[in-house]
Amino acid sequence: MKLLEIRNLAVEFATSRGRFRAVDGVDLTLDAGEILCVVGESGSGKSVTMLALMGLIAWPGKVSADVMRFDGTDLLGLSPRQRRKLIGRDIAMVFQEPMTSLNPCYPVGWQIAEALRAHAAVPRAKVRDRVVELLDQVGIPAPASRMGAFPHQLSGGMNQRVMIAMAIACTPRLLIADEPTTALDVTIQKQILDLLIGLQRQHGMGLVLITHDMGVVAETAQRVQVMYAGQMVEEQGTDGLFATPRHPYTAALLDALPERAMGRPRLPTIPGMVPGIDDRPDGCLFNPRCRFTFDRCITTPPALASIGDARARCHTPLDGQGRPA
């Protein structure tokens, strides 16, 4: 059984200018012990997808899906109470801003303990020991003495470690990390990513890592989903994605990386920008910016097509040489 299975997820927001589909037709499956990266630019809907999964989309947002199952449990049919029991215990999340995700009024140890108490994960007498053990596990030096520290006394990297400790407190089976290292320096980012992967292996968790950084994807993921304007446009194994991207957007995104442009005076770019609420094109959402736009692309929205091991939302997925099939 899949640990997580989502089919045809859509999230709609009622705005003053009509309904807006922030996420549309997203499929997401994850096995236990697998690392999936969801990559996309700002506004691509990657964070909204995860918030929908956690049941954290507030009014006026509306979530719908054909299937949304976690370990066999139907998430759509859960009562808020049952959902709260599941979330935080079996599914946990780490956010982008460690400084604002922690409550500045309480010591970090207390906040981790609260997560333990909320789900009665360990007997009351053992809570303290467990907190120390968790802090130690996430690589915080002198954990016993750091329990009483407040978030402002710790660095960004240390706070993110605390957030991770909180997330794994109840040994979840699925961990969702939403841009967990974007606010951190490179050397700290590396440490946090290594920590996340280490914990994932150790506990056999499923890990969904949301990021905009292709380098992070390449170094952590086993499988990648690329999102564009609220849609999943490509899904592939990591090595395949970087060697032979199937969707023109993925290919263009990789080409635009300075790292891939060694020796070239100018970077290949993607013209224009991600469509907003008002300027969604007909047909394929990427067609105004695509290098290979055909008549069909402007009139008909493409479905997900399988090509090799990959799936791409394109009428003419790219072949191994980067040409449309």
Binding site: T269, P271, G272, M273, P275, G276, D278, D279, P281, P288
Partner: peptide, 13 residues
């Protein structure tokens, strides 16, 4: 500087 936004992407007011 040919990346100026193509006219068909022009945003609504």
């Amino acid at each position: 500087m040919s990346e100026a936004v193509a006219p068909r992407l022009a945003a609504a007011p």
